[in-house]
Amino acid sequence: MFPMRTNDKMIFEKLLTVFREVFLDEDLQIDGSTTAQDIPGWDSFVHVTLMVKVEETFGVQFDDDEIGGLADVGELQQLIAGKLG
């Protein structure tokens, strides 16, 4: 795995905090390849809650297709980075 740049690291750490809050699990671990299948309880309702929290945390707005088309956490991280410029 390549070392993350500072900005990527900052995004990842904030993202991890959001995930832990939403899934009510202080020990939750995620990485770029984590998908909805890896975290019990990640259904469509929780996914939408997660996206709202991410929008609030990073001050970004997702497109409808982006919310429904994410493959894994890595894609979400890239999407946030792209929006933050």
Binding site: S44, F45, H47, D63, D64, D65, I67, G68
Partner: peptide, 29 residues
């Protein structure tokens, strides 16, 4: 499209739909 099933607001507007039919949980989301 599959990517718009969860949050179809943009699809309804852009495709200028006049008739919508779905499950109610779409409204909640």
């Amino acid at each position: 499209p599959p990517t718009s099933l969860l949050v179809p607001a943009k699809f309804i507007k852009e495709r200028q739909l006049s008739v919508w039919f779905s499950v109610p949980s779409v409204i909640f989301l």
